[in-house]
Amino acid sequence: MVNVNHIPVGAHYGFGDWLLQRVTAMVMAVYTVIMGGTLLFCDVLSQDRWKSLLSGNCMRILTFLFILSLCFHAWVGVRDIWMDYVKSVGTRLTLHILTALMLIGCAGWASQILWRL
């Protein structure tokens, strides 16, 4: 069934992306404050301490949420850049696909690094 009432233009269109970008931004901001504070006030620059910090279950989940948020956030942001500057539909579609593939790949790679610890 095609939803004939769907209006693909207007002020409401893109609200989901807008909200996604804000929510992921807040998740990353919280994580940045936690991680920044840890780096500034605790000495984690030896590898053992750095490893034990990130292998703790709580920090691992938080880092995972940060990575997922980053990928969704970058997806919305980078797609906005392509939409603003790339006029050719074919090039833009290619760039969208490459962006999505790269972000999915990065999310998988970073998660694998975290869970191998």
Binding site: A74, V78, W109, I113
Partner: peptide, 18 residues
């Protein structure tokens, strides 16, 4: 945009660090 482009490099550094 720069952070997006450098993301693979940064993940590589994370991998080395761990």
């Amino acid at each position: 945009g720069a952070l997006f482009l450098m993301l693979p490099f940064l993940i590589y550094l994370l991998q080395l660090s761990l």
